[in-house]
Amino acid sequence: MPTTTLNSKSPRTGGASQGCKWVFLLLLGGVLLSGCGASRAATPESFFQLSPESAKHKAQQTRTFETSQEKELLSASAAVLQDLGFQIKESASDLGILRAMKERGAREYGQEIAQVFIMILGLFAQDVFIIPVDVHQQIAATLATRPVEGDTSKFTVRIIFHRIVWQGHGEAGDNHIAPGGQWMEMIHDPKIYQQFFAKLSKSVFLEAHQI
């Protein structure tokens, strides 16, 4: 109870500090008692709502091909992903779905320099601070083909790239930070998508049209 000790030591004794204590205790009690209520994980509605950027991302990730041969399009996509070093992890040809993945190192000079810099700063404070840096990443692609509504001679291909990054170990004072902390991001770099679709259209001898 650091706050309580601080208050009792404060020179302003009497009503004010006593009142503070009560407020603090009431708050604490309230927080603890709230556990008694129906516990429901707070789920932000935004998880299932289209974000304002979703249309932009969709356009970036989708191309239309003038072909009725979906299987051809899918197998060509798989081949392109293979060329890009991905391993195919899941496929459902009846739904036009592919999921592929590749593992890569995620070390970056910037982060390691920051790590050393903060370690040196920590020496002045006579404490060890090693911030965890990214060490490994998994780059994944999920692809789905879909016939264009009302036009069976055209198919859209949508691919989404994302990556999961694992962090190494770290230390903050006496506390060890275990390795394995992870974070994830969707990849929205237009170049990556352009590159993929350029390769795909070359491989099926068809032009990739923007939606």
Binding site: F48, L50, S51, K58, E90, L95, T142, A144, I160
Partner: peptide
């Protein structure tokens, strides 16, 4: 896909 989900299995 629109909602940013990753299809894992189908």
């Amino acid at each position: 896909q629109d909602l940013g989900f990753i299809v894992e299995r189908a």
